[in-house]
Write a protein that binds this DNA or RNA. Structure first.
Length: 199
DNA sequence: AACGCGTCCAACCGCTGTCCA
DNA sequence: ATGGACAGCGGTTGGACGCGT
């Protein structure tokens, strides 16, 4: 018996598809994406509907024109968190993980590379041997920073059922839940990051 | 005008985590 | 305990577009 699996629609969304999707989500909310796709009569997979909603149709979404302040925040958060785009996007109201990822890949990664090569050039002009601290700093920068590793380590401990969450770890002591609880903060407040990076 | 090339961004893919029967 | 369905994430791709020659 031939599989009667219908081919799903792929590629760019039409205005009509957008309208249908928005209609269904208004009624049942942005959940159960498979049923959303079926109810909307869209020949799309749930995943595709979810992505379209989150990255394009969702209300209060900001598109383009990333401000200097936002760019600065992205740079700092990336240094802190690495390629954790959804976490970074969580600090930028109206911005999506996809947009930030694209922005990073097309603008900021190049900017960083340029900075790095400039640094290397000025560094090589000096004949002085690097101190071990300088060498270590370089390595840390290349691996998105020590803090990033600490965050990951903390998460690993958490998932493996480590109860000593407040326990000192390599001299850095903080609570992961608090760290990622942004509910009471001004989203563009850079103070907490500045404090973190200065230590 | 036409071509090549680089850039941008929407969308897809594959993987992992979570939930629930 | 287990396996399937689903949600969510980050990496990657491909088409549209702009620009220089």
């Amino acid at each position: 018996m031939a599989a009667m699996k219908r081919e799903v629609n792929k590629g760019a969304w039409t205005a009509e598809e957008d309208r249908k999707l928005a209609e269904v989500i208004e009624i049942q909310g942005p959940k159960k994406w498979k049923t959303v796709a079926v109810k909307a009569g869209l020949n799309r997979c749930g995943k595709s509907c979810r992505l379209r909603w989150l990255n394009y149709l969702r209300p209060n979404i900001k598109r383009g024109n990333i401000s200097d302040q936002e760019e600065d925040l992205i740079l700092r958060l990336h240094k802190l968190l690495g390629n954790r785009w959804s976490l970074i996007a969580g600090r930028l109201p109206g911005r999506t993980d996809n947009e930030i990822k694209n922005y990073w890949n097309s603008h900021l990664s190049k900017k960083m590379n340029r900075k790095k090569s400039e640094k290397k050039q000025t560094g090589s002009s000096s004949t002085r041997e690097k101190t071990s601290i300088e060498k270590r700093r370089e390595v840390e920068e290349e691996t998105s920073g020590e803090v990033n590793q600490i965050v990951i380590r903390k998460e690993e401990n958490k998932s493996s059922g480590d109860e000593n969450e407040e326990e000192e770890d390599n001299g850095v002591n903080f609570n992961v839940d608090e760290f990622f609880d942004f509910s009471n903060e001004d989203p563009l407040n850079l103070e907490w990051i500045n404090r973190f990076l200065e230590t």
